[in-house]
Design a binder for these strands. Structure first.
Lengths: 250, 250
DNA sequence: CTGTGAATGTTCGATATCGCACAGAGTGTT
DNA sequence: AACACTCTGTGCGATATCGAACATTCACAG
């Protein structure tokens, strides 16, 4: 894999949406990095040195509460960027950004990105629009956490993960999902068991396969669709679809 | 009250932080409006025609879930702006903005604001920074809703309302607070009763008085301080203090 | 094939909140 | 002073999830 992206092969939705001229300018400063499972890109409270345009896999944004466990507030995949808050003037990360899956990204040093943002209007607009839809995702999560049952939230989360990873088979343990959703693993076990009985997912030891995407959408709360539609409103109809959405799922 | 703000008397933190030259340019386009209790500034899904720089009282940003009740995701007071997402490129509001208290604001038509943002770098930077801290507030709320007990969340909310309104006596029923926090009124009644027994607040028929600010901070979860410190990091040490903070509370 | 560790299933008492109902207390109006 | 209405207190069965423990099943290494 080349260290710099090309406009033809880049998967990240923001980079691929750039006009050729801006893409060419920014591509030189982007360096491909492989993301290991469990790798932390940004730590809460610490400076954001690099910004990551996700190419594959997905990143969890986690709020760390002092008493104990982190809790996921948003997912970032190939539709987005980890560390985008530097564009708003933040220097340190308020959240933890962790790769849950293994994957890849193009990364750029924060000062270089800010330099481009000041002189590349399309990139700036795309990053601001992405900031907005990420904000909507977080806001919906706040309401969802307060009001929806775990079974619905689990279905929503699996849909979001599917969208962002682009593959129907996810390497995820129930233990990990429990931390993301802020509940006990045993509660996830029960909810996941129901989904499996209903035939919409299948899982065996850390591998979850989505068998029935529509069934999963029906099992999820409205929050999935609310976020997806905001993406579509700002990025167009196909912005949120995984690259391999057309491929058969099973 | 004059229809346009003056730099000497404006209370809104973003407007008052503008350099004189930019303030003068934007002041002409700002029109003072009184906000009635329960008035809706923006409706979910509808265009943001006007942006409001809050002068007094506070605005709730609410996510409306289809099944029923709205749920508050953030509070906006004189430190901020309602409708700031237009700066990120959004045209429609994803949330409901409602005035919970009665108050006042300076409002500006969205196209006029966007015109200024393009040519007033300080205003743009301030609005982007405010967008960031509001985002942090929403993110913290997402975690808080999932993990913290109502008694802590209630204390946090009262602190935030106090900061944003600038007065220790708030006209708020438990019924209203219950909707904001997404719980039953009877649950609020129990939590508020504990706080009153402990002597940190007092309330009678829709009036809540904060008697012991420090006691309330101790009763609140870390989420209050986490958001406040992010404000301080981006707006300076005093950005988040109510104008009347030095005045005795009781 | 077999053992080992990880992942998952299951149970159970405890708890916070729900959802609802009704009583009591305060405020403003006539 | 009496009334009406709003706001608040309280009780109670139902429920989702907690928190913890233990049993079981699967995948992989040797």
């Amino acid at each position: 894999m080349l260290p710099h992206p090309t406009h033809a092969t880049v998967r990240n939705r923001i980079l691929s949406a750039l006009p050729a001229e801006e893409f060419k300018r920014v591509a030189d400063k982007l360096h491909r990095v492989e993301l290991a499972l469990g790798e932390t890109l940004h730590r809460a409270g610490e400076p954001i040195e690099q910004v990551y345009f996700v190419e594959s896999g997905f990143i969890s944004a986690l709020t760390v509460l002092s008493e104990g466990e982190p809790l996921e507030i948003g997912l970032i995949g190939l539709e987005g960027v980890a560390g985008v808050s530097v564009v708003l003037g933040a220097t340190n990360s308020y959240s933890e950004a962790m790769c849950q899956t293994g994957g890849a990204a193009y990364r750029i040093a924060t000062p270089a990105l800010l330099e481009f943002v000041a002189h590349a209007p399309h990139l700036r607009d795309l990053l601001l629009r992405y900031t907005h839809v990420f904000h909507v995702q977080v806001a919906q999560t706040a309401a969802c956490n307060a009001h929806h049952e775990l079974s619905q939230r689990l279905a929503r989360w699996l849909l979001a993960a599917h969208d962002r990873s682009g593959v129907p088979e996810l390497s995820l343990t129930q233990d990990l999902i429990a931390v993301m959703l802020g509940v006990r693993r045993s509660t996830v076990s029960i909810a996941a068991g129901s989904l499996q009985k209903a035939g919409v997912i299948r899982y065996q030891h850390g591998k979850i396969t989505i068998l029935d995407r529509v069934g999963l959408e029906n099992a999820a709360c409205e929050c999935y669709e609310a976020v997806a539609s905001e993406y579509r409103a700002l990025f167009g109809e196909h912005a949120f679809e995984p690259a391999t959405a057309a491929a058969p799922l099973a």
